[in-house]
């Protein structure tokens, strides 16, 4: 029996908070590179930032197998997610709909996750990765659908192999994973369509 008394609450207003968080996620993926904000107050369970927790409550339910990093899987997150969203936790990266990683965790290669099929490229994993900061890191140039010409981001704490992995992911289009970077109550969306290049300096 899960000690529900120790569980943190979910959204204060499940209907309107989920709607607002969804719009932030929608804008983030429709306009890659823009930093979107979670406006509603939410106390995340230990291990998650507010944005990752809010996305979990907004998008996950019993239809979406959720993969958690090793640290998250061992903590309070599974109980919190199960209680508030009814989502199933899976240890199978290749079939999960969503995968969550906390700041500093080791991100497996994108190729381990579901990339959809050529017939159904939508049957792919969305990875939610918390980073140290959405700003202040190495400058990256973004282009592609949703971006007027080109834009820049500079997240701090991406895996060293990120650009190579992203290039492989991009080349799989229409297959591929979609990525949402989170930190505190903010997020950046990187759909599979985005071209990412390192900028000097």
């Amino acid at each position: 029996m899960v000690a529900t008394a120790t569980l943190l609450p979910g959204f204060a207003d499940p209907v309107f908070d989920a709607q607002a968080v969804f719009r932030a996620a929608m804008d983030a993926l429709a306009r890659p590179g823009t930093i979107q904000q979670i406006g509603c107050p939410l106390t995340p369970p230990k291990g998650l930032c507010a944005a990752s927790a809010a996305l979990m409550l907004t998008l996950c339910d019993y239809d979406t197998p959720v993969y958690l990093s090793a640290a998250l899987a061992q903590g309070v997150v599974p109980g919190w997610l199960g209680f508030h969203a009814g989502a199933k936790i899976t240890s199978d990266k290749s079939t999960c709909a969503f995968a969550f990683f906390e700041k500093g965790s080791t991100l497996p290669a994108f190729g381990h996750f579901s990339q959809g099929t050529q017939d159904y490229p939508d049957r792919s994993t969305t990875i939610i990765l918390e980073v140290a900061s959405l700003e202040g890191g190495a400058r990256l140039s973004l282009s592609g659908p949703g971006i007027n010409g080109a834009t820049e981001i500079a997240p701090l704490g991406l895996p060293a192999t990120f650009l190579d992995q992203w290039r492989v992911n991009r080349a799989l289009f229409p297959r591929g994973i979609d990525l949402i970077l989170t930190c505190s109550n903010r997020l950046i969306g990187l759909p599979r369509t985005v071209n990412i290049k390192a900028l000097e300096g």
């Binding site: 989920a18 969804f22 996620a25 998008l59 979406t64 949703g146 229409p174 979609d178 369509t193």
Partner: peptide, 20 residues
């Protein structure tokens, strides 16, 4: 809310795969 979540997930995929 469950239906909205399902549709919202579909919208996010649709945005990520333009025209699909």
């Amino acid at each position: 809310e469950q239906t909205k979540r399902m549709i919202r997930r579909a919208i996010l995929k649709a945005i990520a795969i333009p025209g699909y």
